[in-house]
Simulated scan of single mutants.
Amino acid sequence: MIVKHEPSPLWLRAWDRDRLAERIEDAVRRGLAGWPLDSGPQLFFRADDVAAPGERCDRMFRIFHDRGAPLDAAVTPAWISSPRAAGLLKLASGPARVDFHVHGWRHVNHETAEPGEPLVSGGKPPKKCEFGPSRPRKAKQRDLETARSRMTGLFGDAFLPVFTPPWNRCDAETLELLADLDFIAVSRDGGALPAAPPTLAEFPVLVDLHTRREDDPDAGMDALLDELAAGLRLPVCGVMIHHQRMNEAAAVFLETLLTALADFQEVRLAGLRSIPGR
């Protein structure tokens, strides 16, 4: 299991909580400006790379429980075991609804250029993808079947048959397999291609809290709040979390965000289980 723990530069600054609240509220108002009176978007929070209970995982769950906000946890099935699942279910028990869904199988990249093979995109290697065109259909189907079976056995009623592909990308063949295997939805970046089959709902993530690349914290915060405003202009908006990269500053932002959102009745905090169209 390999995950990154380094916080993005955005979270290497201690932000003032009161000022954060003001800026978040401004971003929410900007996002809601185009909505008719008494209507607004549904907002969900998706935590990726969930695999084992621990200090940062516990902190994330407590933030949602303390505010009664639903959370969807994307679990990499090959990383999970019975003791780990039991620990996660214990953390999930509380005021907030927490569901668990499939985040790939092993979270391993299979899209690497072979020796002598020309690179794509101006000399860059292929983008990372676990369920991409380099793998045979049977191999992808086997992994998806095994992933679903393991998640069902370990999480029971808390398992939701939604698929989040590692790195938020997969190929058309994988999407067809998901529909054939009775997955109900896929959650990727907003506007991700190829499009899912009609029987597979799309739950897009449009706001990225922790895997940001801006070197300047001010630029990072401006971009993050602009993402939030833009996402809230759409009917469904997902917020992506990586708890392993969530230091104190990032945790304070998440707490402040959830507290601020509670004051906007137009924004419905929803788990994927409750969003219509799934």
Score class of each variant (00 low, 15 high):
Asp72Cys: 14
Glu111Ala: 14
Ser134Thr: 10
Arg106Gln: 12
Trp105His: 13
Lys127Tyr: 13
Pro136Asp: 13
Glu130Thr: 08
Leu154Gln: 02
Trp105Gly: 01
His110Ile: 05
Pro161Gln: 12
Phe155Thr: 09
Pro95Leu: 04
Leu119His: 12
Ala86His: 04
Ser93Pro: 00
Lys138Asn: 13
Phe159Asn: 11
Ser81Cys: 00
Ala69Gly: 05
Val102Leu: 05
Asp143Val: 03
Thr146Ala: 11
Phe159Ile: 07
Gly123Phe: 15
Leu154Val: 08
Thr76Pro: 01
Pro133Gly: 11
Lys138Arg: 15
Arg150Asp: 12
Lys128Phe: 00
Glu130Val: 12
Asp66Tyr: 02
Arg84Thr: 06
Pro136Val: 12
Arg142Ile: 01
Val108Glu: 15
Phe159Cys: 08
Ser81Gly: 00
Gly123Ile: 13
Ala85Pro: 07
Arg135Ile: 11
Gly153Phe: 00
Arg106Trp: 01
Ala158Asn: 09
Ala86Asp: 13
Ala92Arg: 00
Ala92Cys: 00
Pro136Trp: 09
Arg97Ser: 14
Asp157Cys: 01
Glu117Ala: 13
Gly123Glu: 11
Ala69Cys: 14
Ser121His: 14
Gly94Val: 01
Phe100Gln: 03
Arg148Trp: 02
Phe155Gln: 04
Pro133Tyr: 02
Ala85Gln: 06
Ala86Cys: 00
Ala73Leu: 15
Pro136Phe: 10
Asp143Leu: 02
Phe163Met: 09
Lys138Met: 13
Asn109Ser: 13
Val102His: 07
Thr152Arg: 13
His101Ile: 07
Thr76Asp: 07
Gln141Arg: 14
Gly104Cys: 10
Ser82Arg: 11
Glu145Ala: 06
Gly123Arg: 15
Lys128Thr: 01
